[in-house]
Amino acid sequence: MPRYAKHILFIVAPLVAAFAILPFAYNNQLLLFNFVLFLTLAQGVNVIYGFTGYLPFGYVGFFGAGAYGFSLLILHLHAPPLAAMGGAAVAALAIALLLTPLLRLSGAYFSIANLAAALALMQFISNPNLEAITRGPYGVSMTGVFNPRLAYTMALIVMAGAMLVAVWLRNSRFGLALQAVREDPVSAAQAGVDVPRARAYAWLISAVIAGLAGGVFAWYVTVFYPENVFSSDYSIFAVVFALFGGVSTILGPIVGVLILYGVYNFIGFSTPQYFQLIYGALIMALVLFLPQGLISLVKRRGIDVP
């Protein structure tokens, strides 16, 4: 069996199946929905950070763009939700194309510029002068599309898509080329990799993943404010989860979300008064003691992790 088939059969399929079945056994469906959402976003971060080394600190910009792309089609064109999902992807893609020049920046400069771009987009969308188009600061409220079951199913499909992208990157020449660029862009260019183009592709793919996640979120909640869908918590959570598991693998982000978001909710349910404190300390400990993620514990023993 080829490697990618193994990865699909033993990682992606069980994960999707589990989250398809879980709602029947556990009825806090929103918790499950958020798990699916963060699995998608963490994998999206993995695509750009794990495979190119660019840390998208304003990743939520695409999520928000997707949420608004979805909502605007519903509000103004009364599009069916499925078609509006296309709007979510297009909106995120358009923003990503606009921001492609940021890839010229290195290291922290890229991250900060990306964060600034996400904040700028939020300020733009929530400006009262655009009330007629985006509802400005007064928030989006969609009637007639409320259907959490269908939105959950769509979220599963989007997550499956994000996972398949990771499988593809892990097993394709393109993914290999990206990693080569990450390790040493000069040698990669000499070896015939079109460095800027490879990075741009990863960037656009990762943006579309977040955009679709944003669209599905908008569909699920139907009422939201700009602050909700541009909350920097989404970027930070997605990055921290991906990092905790270990990037540039398929499994890392999945493990990261399942464990860390699980712990997050456990703290939230059990000791809410010290929520922020415990979580902040946990993040610090993670960076100081496990900078390569959980996966590195296994890798150190010479085991190859998909």
Partner: peptide, 17 residues
């Protein structure tokens, strides 16, 4: 450089809490 963003985000959470 990248990890520092996350480390100090954690610190910022701890301080705010």
């Amino acid at each position: 450089e990248m990890l520092s963003i996350i480390l100090f985000f954690g610190l910022s959470q701890v301080i705010e809490a």
